[in-house]
Simulated scan of single mutants.
Amino acid sequence: MALIATSFGRHSTAAEVVKGIDLSGKRAIVTGAASGIGIETARALALTGAEVTLAVRNTYAGAQTAADITTTTGNQNIHVAPLDLSSQESIAKFVAAWNGPLHILVNNAGVMALPKQHTSEGWEMQFATNHLGHFALALGLHDALAADGAARIVSVSSSGHLASPVVFDDIHFAFRPYDPLLAYAQSKTANILFAVGATMRWFGDGITANALMPGAIVTNLQRYTGGLKTLPEHRKTPEQGAATSVLLATSPLLDGISGRYFEDCNEAMIVTNGNGYVSGVAPYALNSDNADRLWEESLQLNRNLDYHD
């Protein structure tokens, strides 16, 4: 199977990727859209004429972002809705409030390298926020996505996934010493496996799902790591970091493409070792058996919510 290649690369911006694309009448949700690459992802989608909902924890910051996006794009259809991905109650309220079809869901929000924390359910916080929250959101919005017949889910992962598979026998660090970077890594592997699992289950509903590595961008995501460790020449601006997300959300080149992993606006190669955690995708992150196991585990953890599995 040939890798998807485009004319865009690591220096491309989100605005360049969406140039000439018209999504008037389409509706998009971007989680974590009040900071970092989430802002630029939402802004680029607004440039296409799409109606964009910023799903954010901080609605004050979200309102400021929405106003700025309207000013810079002229798009008046920018909305803000509260969403805390670590709270099942918050996710359920967001889903219940959504009406009508949904064409693009960008699972962008995330946390990184947190000190050891657990949700009220006892779930490790990074896995709960980065994977289980987005899993619950996507399942809750399944019917809205299926109503379109050609909807897209974009799952923002990281090259950090190369540091660890999902450790199914101890996802929540009940028995092994907690390591914040390994906890982050397995949650990012889960983001890719979600795209694989959704493809196996929902492709027939007209829903595609792909995952990506945005690149090294200085944002508040690194507040627990002492800042970005990447060399300055390898870093991206937020506008460049949002480009791959926006490509997966909008490009005609991705019509009917699902269950794959991209970086620098092109599909990534499978690597057989961690290669310094720089690029490529680990085989375990695209493995269909792992995707099935994660899906079933996630359903079990979320068993109290009403989903379509």
Rank of each mutant, 00 (worst) to 15 (best):
A2M: 10
V154D: 06
L102Y: 04
A97Q: 15
V52F: 07
H118E: 13
K236H: 08
L181F: 11
T65I: 10
G197Y: 08
L139C: 12
K229Y: 11
T225R: 12
T31K: 08
S158M: 02
S158L: 11
D22F: 10
L305F: 03
E263C: 01
R293H: 12
V271E: 03
Q300L: 13
S258A: 12
M269C: 10
L47D: 07
H131E: 02
G110Y: 07
T189C: 04
G110I: 06
A5Y: 11
L221Y: 09
I171V: 14
F203W: 04
Y277E: 04
M125E: 13
F8P: 01
N99C: 07
G110C: 10
P238I: 15
T53Q: 06
P165A: 15
K229W: 11
L305H: 08
G226S: 12
P238C: 13
A144V: 03
R152Q: 02
F8Y: 15
H103E: 06
T199E: 10
V111K: 01
D148P: 03
V218L: 14
T72Y: 12
N220K: 15
T72W: 12
D169I: 08
I153N: 00
T199G: 09
S24I: 09
P177L: 11
L114N: 10
A268E: 05
A128C: 13
G204V: 02
S86R: 13
D148K: 09
N130L: 09
D289Y: 12
A113F: 07
F194Y: 11
A282L: 07
A209H: 05
T129N: 07
A128G: 07
L139T: 02
G20V: 03
L305D: 02
G38T: 13
I207H: 05
T225V: 13
T230I: 15
L102N: 02
R152Y: 11
G110M: 03
A28R: 06
M125H: 08
A113R: 00
L105V: 05
L141C: 07
A151N: 01
F262C: 05
L286W: 00
L139I: 05
A34Q: 11
D306Y: 00
Q300R: 15
E89Q: 10
N191G: 04
G100T: 07
E124R: 11
A285C: 03
H161G: 00
A183L: 04
L254N: 01
H161V: 08
G149C: 08
D306T: 12
Q300G: 14
S159C: 10
E40C: 09
Y184V: 01
S157Y: 09
A109C: 08
Y284E: 02
L193S: 03
F135H: 06
L102S: 00
A190V: 11
H103D: 14
G32F: 02
Q300S: 14
V111W: 12
